[in-house]
Design a protein around this nucleic acid. Structure first.
Lengths: 196, 196
DNA sequence: AGGATCTGACAACAGTTGTAGTCAACCGAG
DNA sequence: CTCGGTTGACTACAACTGTTGTCAGATCCT
């Protein structure tokens, strides 16, 4: 059993550490170079590990990019849940959620790019149907109060698209606007979506 | 001078024809297989031409991709211009424009995918900053009547994002809704955007 | 110290990529 | 018919991909 210690740590510890390094390297590459630049070799170079350790933690290149995507997605989900909790009114919930998301992707644009763009571009994700935006859109749709089923879905999909595009434009610098204004505009979008 | 005729056509004619075949093959591949599947060899196979003719018309793989994108973009622009002309009221302009766009991408989803997704996914396009959505957004922004400069830009970027996302969801089948309802909802989005 | 275990640097495989070059066959103008 | 422009099939190259394997050396438990 791998209770045996090595350089002060157990085998499982080091294995988990290496896996984390690989995921971090994958996040960096997927968030900057994009899908094509995220090769097994490139990830290993970046993580300062050899290919052997790649296949110790992942069966595929696919598994790595899926792990990266899910990692970022989970982070975003958690940030949103934390933000919405303890906000009594819908308006406050909207503002907190938007602010949390903006903070997440402004602190680390790589995560924004991965969350918003990767599932559209990387075959490893599209093939698995791994796309969280529809999930978010469904959550948003459930919060809406007006209209029938498909109406809510249309509104939610549109709203998520509007927010995404504004974020993307903000991220790549083509939308020059203060962060405060960005947040308040997005809040307005969210609140306006439910308003008729 | 290449006025000399060959098999009934001049050299320039055949060269142009081959170029068109290559662009058509590029459109097909970029719109179905995506960026990764659009290799020089694959394009040539699809166009039933050899690599030599590829480099007769394009210096790079990049040039081909850019040509395909600009081709589709020009087509979309033309369709929108045609649709908007002769529509007196803003409401009619919005409806005609949306309808024209929907027809374009429903008749040929490949074009929709190229227009909306390719610039986000293909390095050949991102590197050149070849992205027409901001251009469309700017056009839209000029039509808005409320707010200052940045306000109009924010609204336009959001509107374009909302429309794109709805179209994309409709294209990949995840948004099951009748075409008429799609159009009318999009028209509502367009008209609602200017209502501040 | 001995021996099991872990590590890292590399090589090997077959495949695809972009790009360029060669060469035999063809075609139509003079 | 001949000659030069034109065609297409084919090869060549170096670089890269995912994946697996090898092997010398370091590290720690007993």
């Amino acid at each position: 059993m791998p209770g045996r210690t090595w350089a002060g740590t157990t085998l499982d510890d080091r294995k988990a550490l290496r896996r984390a390094q690989l995921v971090a390297a994958g996040l960096e590459l997927l968030g900057t170079e994009g899908s094509a630049g995220t090769s097994v070799r490139a990830v290993c170079r970046h993580a300062k590990l050899t290919e052997r350790y790649f296949y110790e933690s992942f069966a595929d290149r696919e598994e790595l990019v899926a792990a990266v995507y899910e990692h970022v997605g989970e982070e975003a989900r958690q940030a949103l849940v934390d933000a919405v909790r303890d906000a009594p009114t819908p308006a406050q919930r909207a503002e907190h959620a938007v602010r949390a998301f903006v903070e997440l992707i402004v602190d680390d644009p790589r995560k924004g790019r991965i969350l918003l763009l990767a599932p559209l571009t990387d075959p490893a994700l599209t093939r698995r149907g791994l796309h969280l935006l529809p999930v978010f859109a469904a959550l948003v749709g459930d919060q809406l109060s007006h209209g029938d089923e498909t109406e809510r879905r249309l509104v939610a999909v549109g709203l998520v698209g509007a927010l995404s595009n504004v974020f993307i434009a903000y991220l790549d610098g083509s939308l020059k606007v203060s962060r405060e204004r960005l947040v308040s505009h997005c809040v307005k979008l969210v609140l306006g979506a439910d308003g008729h």
